[in-house]
Structure formats: structure tokens, C-alpha cells
Nucleic acid binder design. Structure first.
Length: 263
DNA sequence: ATGGCCTCGCACCGAGGA
């Protein structure tokens, strides 16, 4: 069994103790990180190597930033960034090849999809364009017929069952019909949402706002997702959120989540 | 009472987040 986790850490400098503690306690084989908020020259590569992980990263000063960790091996970088807008410098996509426990190749991408607020406006337009650019890349991966995992912070609440209050979020970019339609296109193309497979009734959250007592009230929503190619989906054994980690001191506003695939 | 926060940086406020 190979365990793949994704975690929007909201700043690696502020999260270092929580992140190392979580790696030690939950022992994922592969990790995708988002919102690293660090330039490549400041990325704490040594820290992860000391913890037993090879790591690649695509950073940017202050904002965004994605990374991929693999226990006991160096992820082989396949692609950083998405095609289609050469002037786009936001660090939101990183793709690697990593071996599972049986030595078979998995393709893994760490995704930090644009938030899109406020709406309407250029940020929402950028979100929708970025979703199409991701779709173009994802279709290429489907055509390769390989086990592929696209995971991370999609900034999309796919269904009404994925939010504590539909009315509270109705005007947010995360829940617009256009955002949901673009997400559904991935599913229509052949990707499957691992947490819908395992928890079809919903009510599983991955994010709780720092404000308005969202965590103590359990006012959360599901915006971090695992999309699995058909060959990866056939191997899905477990999926869960490490919810307890959201409640710790100096936690990220996202909880980590993971899948286990049969080797 | 969705209102309360958090992170980063040429920093002690402003921008961005969701």
C-alpha cells in the first residue's frame, strides 16, 4: 500500500514544527504541499532530507508555491507550471514521477488552483482560464493511460454536500456555477474524485476559516481534492482527512488529507 | 452576528487569502 497525502500548509516558515510533527506521526510515502510561500533559495530542502524525504519544489516569494516529497527517493520532475500563458509566473503546478512500494511508476501533481475572489473580475477570469489549462494537461495524462494522481487545493466546493452552509458561501468564487462546471469537466473526462467515491454523502471538510469561530463550530468545506486516473482509481483502498491536526496550536487553515493505493 | 484571523515582507501596515 502506498500512502499519498496533500496539505495546504499556508506558509512553510510558520508551519515547520507542525509539518515535521505531522510527517513523523502519519508517515506518508508521498506528499504534495501547497502555499509554501517561499522562494526556491529559501526552501528548507535539508529539513525534509533529514526527515527521510527527497523533495522538489516550485516556489515564489510571499505567495503560492508547491512542492512534492517522496520517502526514500528523489521525485523525478516532469513539469513545472502549465502551458498556455507564458507570462504567468504564479507557482501553482508541479508534476513528478515517483515509484510506489512495488517499484511501479506513479505520476503525481501538486495543484494550487487560484482562489478567484473577488467576483466578477480579473481574478475570477484567471481562475477559469487556469482550470482550462489544467484540463488540457490532465487530458494528456489520461491519454497516457498511467496511474496518475492530481491532488491539492482546488479552491472549488464541488457540491452542496461539501459545505457547511450553502447560503453562506453562495456568492464566493469557490462555489460559482462556472467553477463547479469546470471541475465537473475533469470528472467527465475520466478523473474520479476519491473522496466522493469513499464519502458519497459528503459532510467531509478539508478547510476551516481562521475567522468567525469556523473551527470550533465545524463550519468547514471541502476544497482539497484527489483526482485519480482510471488506473489509479482501480487501486484506491482508503481515503481520509487528518482532521485532528487542524485543531493544534499554530495550525494551517487546511487539514492534511490522504489516499492509500494498492501496489 | 459570517463577526472574530493569519501569513508574508526592503515590515510595525497592507495585500492576499477563502
Amino acid at each position: 500500500m502506498t500512502k499519498i497525502s496533500t496539505f495546504n500548509i499556508n506558509g512553510i516558515k510558520a508551519r515547520t514544527p507542525r509539518l515535521l510533527e505531522w510527517l513523523d506521526e502519519t508517515a506518508p510515502d508521498i506528499v504534495c504541499l501547497q502555499e509554501v510561500k517561499s522562494q526556491d533559495k529559501d526552501f528548507p530542502k535539508d529539513m525534509f532530507e533529514k526527515a527521510g524525504y527527497g523533495v522538489i519544489f516550485h516556489g515564489q516569494k510571499s505567495f503560492n508555491g508547491v512542492a512534492i516529497l517522496a520517502k526514500g527517493q528523489e521525485p523525478k520532475e516532469i513539469q513545472r507550471g502549465l502551458e498556455g500563458e507564458p507570462e504567468d509566473e504564479q507557482a501553482r503546478y508541479l508534476e513528478a514521477e515517483i515509484l510506489d512500494k512495488s517499484g511501479n511508476a506513479l505520476r503525481v501533481a501538486s495543484i494550487y488552483l487560484p482562489n478567484g475572489n473577488p467576483l466578477p473580475g480579473p481574478k475570477f477570469d484567471y481562475k477559469l482560464r487556469w482550470m482550462q489549462r489544467l484540463r488540457n494537461r490532465a487530458q494528456i495524462l489520461l491519454n497516457e493511460e498511467i496511474p496518475a494522481i492530481l491532488c491539492g487545493d482546488y479552491n472549488v466546493i464541488p457540491r452542496d454536500e461539501d459545505v457547511f452552509s450553502v447560503s453562506a458561501m453562495a456568492s464566493d468564487a469557490l462555489m460559482q456555477p462556472e467553477s463547479r462546471a469546470a471541475y465537473r469537466q475533469y470528472l467527465g473526462d475520466g478523473w474520479s474524485d476519491a473522496f466522493v467515491t469513499k464519502y458519497p454523502a459528503g459532510g467531509v471538510w478539508t478547510y476551516w476559516d481562521y475567522q468567525a469561530g469556523a473551527w470550533p463550530r465545524d463550519n468547514g468545506f471541502r476544497i482539497d481534492h484527489f483526482l485519480l486516473s482510471p488506473i489509479a482509481a482501480d487501486r484506491l483502498e482508503h481515503a481520509a482527512v487528518d482532521k485532528e491536526h487542524r485543531g493544534r496550536e499554530k495550525a494551517s487553515d487546511h487539514a492534511p488529507l490522504w489516499v492509500q493505493l494498492r501496489d
